[in-house]
Design a protein around this nucleic acid. Structure first.
Lengths: 335, 335
DNA sequence: CTGAAAGCGCTTACAG
DNA sequence: CTGAAAGCGCTTACAG
């Protein structure tokens, strides 16, 4: 099953044109002095014969792979669209800079795939998605001194990170709700081992503080990991007569909506609902759900650009915060 | 930003142990005659010093990249979980055979990323997902004589393909429904430019034929691409008093369920609903939705194995059909 | 059983 | 401005 497609090399071109391989190489890379005439002749030949240099060979010579790694955790399966959109963003940018992206899954703390990829010298750098407070992949890469960036937020300030401004976003959505005159806003959030959970909580608190108010801790439920827990939380919230439920992500929101439906509590008539995260899970919901909107593809784009710049030794910001949008929908309309 | 991690080479080992690079290479690959004693000594040294060969260099020498490409179309965004699960399956198998997977997006017929990846000699083969009747990526790869396999089904029998047995699966689900005594089963399907649409239709027909019955063409709606079209279709089906709506995929099913809800038609009390495809979109629906179940990760596993075998020149089956499960839920319970 | 040497397809000091 | 040569880190006939 050999590929019989003409595999032209730099040597073939040199021979055909009666120049040296060095010259051909220079014409291609544009580096080193070379006569305009010779260069044009070579470039023309290349175009005409559809030659493409072997990136692997180039990589070996320059100790580069022209690959970057992208990890996905199996927890990503929970927020399906995120990884895919992000990956498309990364891939788009990588391609435009003549890099490719190799994927690597990290499941249940098993970083063997990542280790393999790195120790096999298959990538020049890595993009980590969804980091935990304690992040084995990040620690591994740090110990290996491989350039890497993190999509998300880590406590370790020395790590290059790119994230949406979750804190401000959550603050803004909460503020809008508070200004509607709501008195008993509840918050249901996921695992506190994710940094983003803390960020969202802080944003929520910020909104209260700015208005000189105090959030009611009795209405805040964190570490809500299962449908069961969320059902319980919702029951309690009904008893406590919350007037709005803020969900930290769409998964939680889906469970909350199901539970409310089962209890025959109407949204937005009886209670308001909003999500701190957008995903297509809620796209077709009736009523439509108020949520934050993040441009995940852009997140991928930017992260890739930063990693590549970093690999090339350019200075890059240690922390990059991307924007958001608040999308008000039916679920928070006061009757 | 250089990686200062010890980059040991085969030469270093040879020098330290007073043998030749050839010998070291042989010890590692296990090919070529070599004394057991020398081999053990080398292997031990390698283990002790945590040496990992540079796969890129090995690749250059063997004209291999130890990478395979995996394409995803932007239409995949419609069935989110599919690509990701599939990719995890592919990656898992690839890793176990010391290969890596490079992703490449193909959007709106733009195969430039794929072309780049291939002409840059970055992959030894490619896995294509979601092929269309007319498939530019497949045609391109064929013309380049690059080993590749397709996840899905193509009309071109010369292409190595791996798919679930959609036809049998759809037939089985339809049969079960027919045996419940349903008289007016409707079918709403997507674009006919996907081979799988035809397969599903055939399976539907098969069920009727086997029972000596004839499907009512008046209840079959294909090329239902938009929410708008599906709404119309559902309206007509209500008028025609269909007793069951079979949806070819979960996207369609979601639209159908929304429309029925809006029209205040209860599932399963007033009409039954089932889907020919499973995805998490419907996971939390109330009532739970009867659907077919496919093991997508396994699909990825098998596809990768077949491609790798093919690359290595082993004989592989031209067509591989994987199983399915019928999962009966509330949405098809006759009262 | 072991090694010297050529080669994979590039890049890049060093000379001229 | 151009080229011969060494090198990137491996593999593999060929000889011994």
């Amino acid at each position: 099953m050999e590929n019989q497609y003409k595999k032209m090399t730099i040597g073939d071109i040199a021979e055909q044109l009666g120049v040296s391989k060095t010259t051909v190489s220079r014409a291609i890379s544009g580096k080193g002095r070379i006569g305009a005439e010779t260069r044009d002749k070579i470039l023309e030949y290349i175009k005409e014969h559809n030659y493409r240099p072997n990136v692997i060979a180039k990589g070996l010579a320059k100790s580069r792979t022209y690959n970057i790694g992208l990890t996905l955790g199996d927890y990503d399966l929970m927020d399906l669209p995120f990884f895919q959109k992000c990956m498309i963003g990364v891939s788009e940018m990588a391609t435009s800079m003549d890099y490719d992206v190799i994927i690597s899954t990290v499941s249940a703390g098993d970083i063997s795939q990542l280790e393999r990829m790195v120790t096999n010298h298959k990538v020049d750098g890595v993009i980590l998605t969804r980091t935990l407070l304690q992040d084995p992949p990040a620690e591994f890469l740090k110990s290996r001194q491989i350039p890497f960036v993190v999509i998300g937020t880590t406590l370790d300030k020395s790590i290059i990170q790119i994230d949406n401004d979750h804190r401000s976003a959550c603050k803004e959505l909460t503020s809008i709700l508070l200004m509607k005159g709501l008195k008993k806003i509840a918050l249901i959030g996921g695992s506190r081992s994710y940094v983003v959970t803390e960020k969202r909580l802080k944003g929520f608190m910020d909104a209260y503080e700015e208005m000189g108010m105090k959030a009611d801790n009795d209405l805040i439920y964190l570490d809500a990991e299962s449908n069961f827990m969320i059902n319980n939380n919702v029951e309690e919230l009904i008893r406590k007569k919350a007037d709005c439920i803020l969900c930290m992500d769409d998964n939680i929101c889906t469970f909350v909506l199901n539970k409310l439906k089962k209890e025959k509590i109407k949204v937005p008539n009886d209670i308001l609902v909003a999500s701190f995260y957008n995903s297509s899970l809620l796209e077709n919901n009736d009523p439509s759900i108020t949520s934050l909107q993040f441009n995940v593809k852009e997140l991928g784009n930017v992260s890739c650009k930063i990693l590549l710049d970093h690999i090339k030794g350019k200075p890059v910001p240690n922390r990059t915060l991307l924007g958001y949008e608040v999308s008000m929908k039916e679920s928070t309309q006061l009757r």
